[in-house]
Amino acid sequence: MNEVNPKTRLLNVLNKRTTDRPPVICMGGMMNASIVEIMNSTGFTLPAAHDNPDLMASLAGAIQEQTGFENLGVPFCMTVEAELLGSRIDKGTLACEPKITKEAFCSVGAVIYRDIDEMIESGRIRTVTAATTKLAVTHQHLPVVVSMTGPISTAASIIDPMSFYKELRKNPASAHRVLDYVTELLIRFAEKSVKAGASVIAIGDPSATGEILGPLMFKEYAVRYLNVLTEAVHGFGTPVILHICGDINKVRSLIPELQADAISTDAMVNLAKLKEDYPSVTTMGNLSTYSLQWGSPHSIAAQTSKLVGDGIDIISPACGLSTSTTLANIRAMTRTVQGE
C-alpha cells in the first residue's frame, strides 16, 4: 500500500485534490492542543514556551506525537501580534492561555502607526519564525501550520473593543486605516512564516463573527480584510485555513466569497449542510470541544465517525480546547479518522 504522507494529504485537500481520507489536524493559535497532561509528562511547558523558540518547537512536536494530530501548530496563543503592536499581555500559566490585560489604544483615532519593517524583526514573531524553521527541518513529512490572529481580532486586541466596535460604524475611515495597517503586518508575518517553512497559514478571527458584526459589517470589514490577507498568502504559494467562531447563520451566504482554502467552524454549524449548499467550500471541523473535554472516548469516536461519514474535508476540534482535556479523548478522535 502506498501511504500518503500527512503533509501531502493536507495540501491535496487544500488544493481540492482527492485523497485517501480526511486529515485530522489542530491548527494551533487560539485552537492549540497544549493540554496540561502533555506538558506535565514532557516538561515542555507553558508559559515558558510562548517565548522560547526551542521550547515552542519541542512542545509542538510533543503535541503532534502524543495526540496523533497530523500537523504541527504554532504558536499557542493569539497575543503575538497584539503584543508587538503595543498591548499589554499577561502570559498566563501552565493551564491558562495568555490574554490582553490592556489594549494599547483607546480608539481607532489614537492608534500610533509604527514602521512594519522594524516590527516584523522583533517580538515573538521572531520566536514563532525560529520555531517554524526548526519544526520544518525536523518534521519534513508533516505540515507546519502557523496560526495568526485575523485582522479584526488583532485590531480589537490593540484598541479597546467597546470603542472599536462602535467606531466600525461611527468612524469607518479611521477604522479602515487601522485594518489596513494591521493586515499589512499580518501579511508580513505570514511571509516570514512561509519563508521559515510553514506549509499552511491558519487564521482565527474570533472577534469577526457574523453574530457580533451582522452581515453588512461582516462583508465590509471581515470578508474584505480576510481576503486581502488570504490573497497575499496565496501570492507566497501557500494555502490558508480560516476559522470562523460562533453561529455563521447570519453570514452564511457570504462564506463562498471568502478566498480561504478551507473554512473551519464552531460546533453548532452543520458542516454537511454547508458543504451541500456550497460545494465549492472546503469544510473543516468541527468536533465539539465540550465533548472533547467531558465526553467519553466512545462518544467522541462516534461523533468523529459522523463527521468523516458526512464527508467533512478536514477533521479538527471546533474551537479552543480546554487545557484539562485528556489525551485519551483526543486520541479517540485522531485514531477514528486514521481508521485504528
Binding site: 466596535y165 460604524r169 461611527k170 453574530e211
Partner: peptide, 10 residues
Amino acid sequence: EEYFIPEILL
C-alpha cells in the same frame, strides 16, 4: 438580528 453588537453599544 437586525441590530448587532456595534449598534447595541451605540
